[in-house]
Nucleic acid binder design. Structure first.
Lengths: 124, 124
DNA sequence: TGAATTCGTAATAAACGAAGTTACATGAAA
DNA sequence: TTTCATGTAACTTCGTTTATTACGAATTCA
């Protein structure tokens, strides 16, 4: 599939697709080919790739939007709040990452296939 | 304490402080007074106010930085990913909110006092 | 009463990061 | 050798958050 086709699917720009897919390629999850009939291809087995792998491949972006702006602040108030919540955030993050690791591309593909059949049936 | 003093403490602007404190006032957690010797005052008992209350007073800002951009997408792929993760995110959010509810301002105050004494002792 | 303070709030500007776009180089196939 | 597609740097645009300005209203003090 070409960057252009992918970009069209998700309403964005081919270069944005290349940027992101490039990270997945570095992680060995996809391969790209240039020229005629080029584009992107999944190289790993769908059963072997989890959302945890994708999260790691994309640079482990921050999961939380709030909390802890500074790991070791001088401000004692900030220190107290961090101390009160750091453990909880770590626990919640661990939970999420565990769950990410339980969802494979094969799972998503199966669910997609089911939804696709359902949508087709509804149209009739 | 005046908005200006608070702003200085947290390296920001007095108007920013007023905006945020205004939300806490609407929630009944603080009161403000104008004119000479005016400023902000905590009105609730420190034991009675939790971080959960603060989060609610500030409008329940989003906790997660990733996941679910669209609650009911047309895209079937997006639907599959949402279905796979929505429960997990809900669980993690519930965990965090529970913990927020367990931390009172009194707890933070006690921890701060301890740290403050410790810092003083170290200076001698 | 009048000057000094301090909050209340709207309006505007600045800063920042994410996303989009352009441009051009590289490689592969027809 | 032309066409197609990725690779990547540079730049622009966009949206959100934060900072700032400006002015009004309320309160205190002299």
């Amino acid at each position: 599939m070409t960057s252009e086709a992918l970009a069209h699917c998700m309403s964005t720009h081919p270069v944005v697709v290349r940027r992101t897919m490039g990270l997945l390629r570095k992680a060995g999850l996809v391969a790209s080919e240039r020229g005629h009939a080029g584009g992107w291809r999944i190289t790993a087995a769908l059963e072997a790739v989890t959302l945890r792998h994708l999260h790691a491949a994309l640079g482990e972006p921050a999961i939380f939007a709030i909390g802890n702006r500074n790991e070791t602040p001088d401000c004692l108030v900030e220190q107290s709040v961090n101390a009160a919540l750091d453990g909880t955030f770590a626990e919640a993050e661990a939970l999420l990452l565990e769950r990410f690791a339980e969802v494979t591309l094969a799972d998503l593909s199966a669910d997609f296939t089911r939804r696709h059949a359902q949508r087709r049936a509804q149209k009739e």
